[in-house]
Design a binder for these strands. Structure first.
Length: 578
DNA sequence: CCTTCACTAAACATGG
DNA sequence: CCCATGTTTAGTGAAG
């Protein structure tokens, strides 16, 4: 039972962690580009491998933490924790070596601390991209393909009882559609939205969409050239196709699992799936293992959709969110959803889980402009961005923001000016925007931070899921911060301490806590940036955010409980808290 | 029903 | 003049 709980936790954390990592790396690229619109990722190097390794170590951190928490009460027996951590790390390193040696696929389920199947099941599209990079980096693909373990179609069927979504293991003798488009999914390229996207499923937004490639191609001709030269029918491409099959299969399995979980949750909550609002459409999204397949019917209406657009939303990549967290479920429709703020939906978590989805699907993100801007800024290396960099972040992270630019850019500027929490700083290189975290927190209703009734609700029932999700997201993000912060990589106890500081809120505050090298200051004072600061007056101030210790206590209380079914990796619909 | 919030649109100012 | 940036106001709809 404990093992099951831990495994489930691994899934959750792995998903979050990897997504967040991707997010961060993207941001760093954006921070450097300074106005130019260039995606600079796509390098395949040992760094990628190291990246994966770090991610998995992070999973270990979380697992170990949970084990410690559950068995020994939180905060005690740090020595045992560290020993377990080291043990897990060693196992993970073995696992990585196996990946390298066997072309990523020959693992026996018992090898390594986390079987690759578990990882794959937990993988969000970002993970898969990472996976592909690793595959591409394996030079001995020829050996790998001779290796019998490469036959991916046979080594995963034991993981669950879901067998409906079998994918034919046959290797097509022609270039396959993009993995995200899935092997068995008919291509829907008739969209008039983006001709270059429609013209080839492996080409979009000026880059090659071959898994793990992302090579920049100026036009279709160049792309075709690239495709024929780099992704010709050879052993490596064949192996990648096989892996992609596996990926699709795993995604379907995971989708089925999540769907079942959702059904169980709804059953538990006495909700009928057919209820018109607010769940029926998300149910379609989540419950249909067939969403991926029947995507050609068009995007489900329940998905957030661009309200001002007459164009049919398209999903250039069909990977969809492997796990659409409920934060995107409870607020379908326009971006105007206070929930994400009011109930402290961890935007970082949501983005982490569905990062690839938002990048490629023309779906409006379920966050307010303010929260998105804040996230973009906090994600940047210096936690400051020029307006143009914010624009770039939007367009890079969300396919939706690649059009209607006038509208949303105006909205961005409007938000920057309107909200007191965004502080314009005259820098050496011009004006940059920063986030005054204190002001941002002030904006937030005190529901999650102090209301005794809310805390009570959270402890007693549904709220646990929400809190737990926030906590897990915070864990994921703080782990990421550890990865990004060399000085803290080895400081696992520091990590766990930092993790315990959060659990209430948008996880970005965690980023700050960790990034500021352990400092628990709630936010950066704009004066730190110091030259020229425009002070804005925001008309209505909400109640002061009194961050209670009691909430943290409740977190620890909850963590000490057995995992059982409460290990939901998504938040329950916040409406249920009302 | 009222208020608050978020989004959209637009006008306007400023500086390069 | 154009464009990017920044500020401000007004209208609208959703939600509390």
């Amino acid at each position: 039972m404990m093992v099951e709980s831990a495994t489930e936790t691994i899934r959750t954390t792995s998903s979050n962690q990897n997504g967040v990592s991707s997010l961060s790396s993207q941001s760093e690229g954006g921070g450097r580009e300074g106005g130019s619109n260039g995606d600079t990722n796509g390098e395949i190097s040992p760094v990628d491998l190291l990246h994966l390794q770090q991610q998995q170590v992070c999973v270990c951190v979380f697992v170990c933490l949970c084990v410690c928490v559950c068995q020994q009460q939180l905060g005690s027996k740090q020595l045992a924790f560290q020993q377990q951590l080291i043990q897990m790390q060693q196992l993970q390193q073995q696992h990585i070596l196996n990946l390298q040696r066997q072309g990523l696929v020959g693992l026996q389920p018992g090898q390594g601390a986390v079987p690759i199947q578990s990882l794959q099941q937990a993988m969000c599209p970002t993970d898969l991209q990472q996976l592909w990079k690793d595959v591409a980096s394996v030079q001995s693909a020829e050996e790998a393909i001779k290796h019998e373990g490469l036959d991916l179609s046979t080594n995963s069927s034991n993981s669950t009882s879901y067998s409906a979504s079998k994918v034919s293991p046959q290797i097509p003798h022609h270039p396959l559609p993009n993995g995200q488009n899935s092997v068995h999914t008919p291509k829907r390229d008739s969209s008039t939205h983006e001709e270059h996207t429609a013209s080839h499923p492996l080409y979009g937004h000026g880059e090659c969409k071959w898994p793990g490639c992302e090579a920049l191609c100026e036009d279709m001709g160049q792309f075709i050239k690239h495709l024929n030269s780099e992704h010709a029918l050879d052993d490596r491409s064949t192996a990648q196709c096989r892996v992609q099959m596996q990926v699709v299969q795993q995604l379907e399995i995971q989708l089925a699992k999540e769907s079942e979980r959702l059904q169980a949750m709804m059953t538990h909550l006495h909700m009928r799936p057919s209820e018109p609002k607010p769940f029926n459409q998300p149910l379609n999204l989540a419950s249909s293992g067939s969403l991926l397949k029947r995507d050609s019917e068009g995007f489900p209406e329940g998905l957030p959709h661009p309200p001002t657009s007459a164009a049919t939303p398209i999903t250039p990549l069909r990977q969809g969110p492997s796990v659409i967290s409920s934060s995107s479920l409870h607020g379908v429709g326009p971006i105007r959803r206070r929930n994400s703020d009011k109930f402290c939906t961890p935007i970082a978590s949501e983005l982490a889980q569905n990062c690839e989805f938002y990048k490629n699907a023309d779906v409006r993100p379920p966050f307010t402009y303010a929260s998105l801007i804040r996230h973009a800024i906090l994600e940047s290396p210096d936690r400051q961005l020029t307006l143009n960099e914010i624009y770039n972040w939007f367009t890079r992270m969300f396919a939706y923001f690649r059009r209607n630019t006038a509208t949303w850019k105006n909205a961005v500027r409007h938000n920057l000016s309107l909200h007191k929490c965004f502080v314009r700083v005259e820098n050496v290189k011009g004006a940059v925007w920063t986030v005054d975290e204190v002001e941002y927190q002030k904006r937030r209703p005190p529901k999650m931070t102090g209301s005794p009734t809310l805390v009570k609700n959270m402890i007693s029932g549904l709220g646990f899921g929400s809190l737990n999700a926030s906590y897990q997201a915070a864990l994921a993000e703080s782990s990421l911060s550890l990865l990004n912060s060399p000085t803290l990589v080895n400081n696992s106890t520091g990590a766990s301490l930092n993790m315990l500081h959060v659990g209430h809120d948008d996880v970005s505050s965690t980023v700050e806590q960790v990034n500021s090298n352990g400092s628990c200051s709630p936010g950066l004072s704009p004066q730190q940036y110091g030259h020229h600061v425009h002070v804005k007056e925001e008309p209505a101030e909400m109640e002061e955010d009194s961050r209670p210790v009691s909430l943290i206590a409740s977190v620890t209380q909850n963590l000490s409980m057995p995992g059982d079914e409460r290990d939901m990796d998504e938040e329950l619909p916040t409406e249920e808290l009302e």
